[in-house]
Amino acid sequence: TGEEYIAVGDFTAQQVGDLTFKKGEILLAIEKKPDGWWIAKDAKGNEGLVPRTYLEPYS
């Protein structure tokens, strides 16, 4: 299990392996990579890379 984050903006996948999401979606951070791209999972179970700058902790 990971930590929940809320998307603060829309993001469209730029390449294969990225995860597209919309502002307000809750994402589960699976792995926090030091380069600023995290592996996350959305509510539908889709998994991919997301930019850290689009996420804020969800409580």
Rank of each mutant, 00 (worst) to 15 (best):
Thr1Met: 13
Gly2Ala: 12
Glu3Met: 13
Glu4Ile: 15
Glu4Val: 15
Glu4Lys: 14
Tyr5Pro: 00
Tyr5Asn: 00
Ile6Thr: 05
Ala7Gln: 01
Ala7His: 01
Ala7Ser: 06
Val8Lys: 10
Gly9Cys: 15
Gly9Lys: 15
Asp10Trp: 05
Asp10His: 06
Phe11Ile: 04
Phe11Gln: 02
Phe11Pro: 01
Phe11Ala: 01
Phe11Cys: 06
Thr12Glu: 11
Thr12Tyr: 13
Ala13Glu: 04
Ala13Ser: 10
Gln14Ile: 12
Gln14Pro: 05
Gln15Asp: 09
Gln15Glu: 10
Gln15Leu: 09
Gly17Cys: 07
Asp18Trp: 15
Asp18Cys: 15
Asp18Ile: 14
Asp18Thr: 14
Asp18Asn: 11
Leu19Gln: 01
Leu19Met: 06
Leu19Ala: 01
Thr20His: 05
Phe21Val: 08
Phe21Asn: 00
Lys22Leu: 08
Lys23Ile: 08
Gly24Leu: 03
Gly24Met: 03
Gly24Asp: 05
Glu25Asp: 15
Glu25Ala: 12
Ile26Ala: 03
Ile26Thr: 05
Leu27Trp: 01
Leu28His: 09
Leu28Gly: 03
Leu28Phe: 12
Leu28Val: 14
Ala29His: 02
Ala29Glu: 02
Ala29Gly: 04
Ala29Pro: 06
Ile30Met: 09
Ile30Tyr: 05
Ile30Cys: 06
Glu31Phe: 13
Glu31Thr: 11
Glu31Gln: 12
Lys33His: 12
Lys33Phe: 12
Asp35Gln: 05
Asp35Ile: 03
Gly36Thr: 04
Gly36His: 05
Trp37Gln: 06
Trp37Phe: 08
Trp38Tyr: 06
Ile39Lys: 09
Ile39Leu: 14
Ile39Phe: 11
Ile39Ser: 05
Ala40Gly: 04
Lys41Trp: 05
Asp42Glu: 01
Asp42Gly: 03
Asp42Cys: 03
Asp42Ser: 06
Ala43Asp: 08
Ala43Glu: 09
Ala43Ser: 14
Lys44Asp: 11
Lys44Gln: 13
Lys44Trp: 15
Lys44Ser: 12
Lys44Thr: 10
Lys44His: 13
Gly45Lys: 03
Gly45Cys: 06
Gly45Ile: 00
Gly45Asp: 05
Asn46Gln: 10
Asn46Leu: 08
Asn46Val: 09
Glu47Ile: 15
Glu47Cys: 14
Glu47Pro: 03
Glu47Asn: 07
Gly48Asn: 01
Leu49Pro: 04
Leu49Gly: 07
Val50Met: 02
Val50Tyr: 00
Val50Lys: 00
Val50Trp: 01
Val50Gly: 02
Pro51Leu: 10
Pro51Trp: 10
Arg52Lys: 13
Arg52Ala: 15
Thr53Met: 13
Tyr54Glu: 06
Leu55Ile: 08
Leu55Phe: 05
Glu56Gln: 12
Glu56Ala: 13
Glu56Arg: 12
Pro57Glu: 08
Pro57Arg: 09
Pro57Val: 09
Tyr58Phe: 11
Tyr58Ile: 10
Tyr58Glu: 04
Tyr58Asn: 07
Tyr58Arg: 08
Tyr58Lys: 08
Tyr58Thr: 08
Tyr58Pro: 04
Ser59Met: 12
Ser59Gly: 11
Ser59Arg: 12
Ser59Ala: 12
